[in-house]
Simulated assay, not measured.
Amino acid sequence: MYPVAPLNRALSSAIQARIDNKTKPLGALGDLETLALRLGQIQLQQVSDPLAICHPTMLVFAGDHGIANAGVSIAPSEVTTQMVLNFVAGGAAINVFCRQLGWQLKVVDCGILAPLDHPQVISQRLGAGTRPFHQVPAMGRAQVEQGFALARELVRAQLADGCNLLAFGEMGIGNTSAAAAIMAALTGLPVAECVGRGTGVDDAIFARKVALISEALALHQPDRHDPVGVLAAVGGFEIVQLTGAILAAAEAGVPVLVDGFIVTVAALCAVRLAPGVRDYLIFAHQSQEQGHRLLLEALDARPLLQLGMRLGEGSGAALALPLLEAAVNFYNQMASFAEAGVDNVVETPRDAARVDG
């Protein structure tokens, strides 16, 4: 479905040698060096080319969930629409961070309760909210495929405008329940380990979330080897389009800065559909949501930040952009030992240097 090519690692040794020959001890820039190497593997045709981040774009996907009416959140579904209006008015955290850091922000209606006739809302509706997945499938497989196609075209439009770094956020009351259900279905982990507090629910609502998700998985018996079927059974319209957008970015050879719990669930779906996707994912942060640490472990991912956040909206991904820019800039601008006329006294093998330091 998505022919995602694995990274061409032919230049990896040369890129790493360029990084190692900057005026610093081996490995002294830590994860910034890993970032520069990964961006080089994705972008560079020859090692002397510069790295670049062009028109970084944040797409926030919104959708409503039938499960929300079962009392799995402290907020009613109407808050989804209210927050979408807050996004386009510029008043949410993600707006603040995008303005500060230079992201282009776009908001996508994947299926909130009622359509919004607003010029700043991109309409890619799959319905007026999903069905309650503890009673019936959340959607049909055809809706999943339609969501993938819409997301692919949206991503292609951003890339045609010169974007070469994408990040995705989400909004949808009830979507931590859908994400936890997807996670449990795909990983086989106990539901109680996948469910988190979401908007800050109390113990009674938490227990209800666990019970309803367990009922849903028993009802649908989704096949963990069929991510499309899992999304149809217990997913959300915004999670479907997140998955499709991640697939499309990787297909185009563009890195994705992955946000928190819900976006990482979509990333897991995408990797299960096309394993090569994993090479294009950079994980921004570890959310406070209980299941996120286990998700990151399942994807063998080391996040850049750990700030105790659990907001969603793409907020953690937005905050990680300066780290990618720092990786790009040191790779492009930092002098080598030869260029600076500095003696390179670090002659120990790279692994030994890491152990020592």
Rank of each mutant, 00 (worst) to 15 (best):
L257N: 10
V107Y: 09
I94G: 03
P227Y: 05
G66R: 10
G169W: 06
F261Q: 08
V121L: 08
A252I: 01
E313Y: 09
A270H: 12
S214K: 08
G200N: 13
L105W: 04
E325H: 12
L311F: 05
G40R: 09
A267L: 00
G276I: 02
A274V: 03
A326Q: 13
I112E: 04
D223W: 06
P322V: 00
Q290C: 03
L186W: 07
P322T: 02
V355D: 11
V256E: 01
A28I: 07
F133L: 00
V136M: 10
R224I: 00
R156C: 10
I205P: 00
A70M: 05
G27N: 09
Y331C: 03
H285G: 01
L26C: 02
L166P: 02
P50W: 07
V107H: 01
V240W: 09
V210N: 10
C110R: 07
V195C: 06
P322R: 08
I173Q: 00
H292Y: 11
A340R: 11
A274G: 00
G172H: 05
A249T: 07
G140A: 14
L281D: 06
N175D: 13
Q288P: 13
A301N: 10
P6E: 14
A157R: 11
P76F: 03
A318K: 02
E78V: 08
V263I: 08
G357H: 13
A75P: 01
L323W: 08
L305S: 14
E170H: 07
A233E: 02
C54D: 14
D20T: 02
Q16N: 15
V60G: 06
H220C: 02
A75N: 15
T348H: 10
A207S: 10
R156K: 14
I112Y: 02
K22A: 08
D351C: 03
V96C: 11
V107W: 02
S13E: 15
I213C: 05
A28T: 03
G260M: 01
E313P: 06
L126E: 04
D279K: 04
N329M: 09
D259G: 12
L186Q: 02
D223H: 12
Q146T: 10
E78A: 14
L323Y: 08
G253P: 01
L294N: 12
G91I: 00
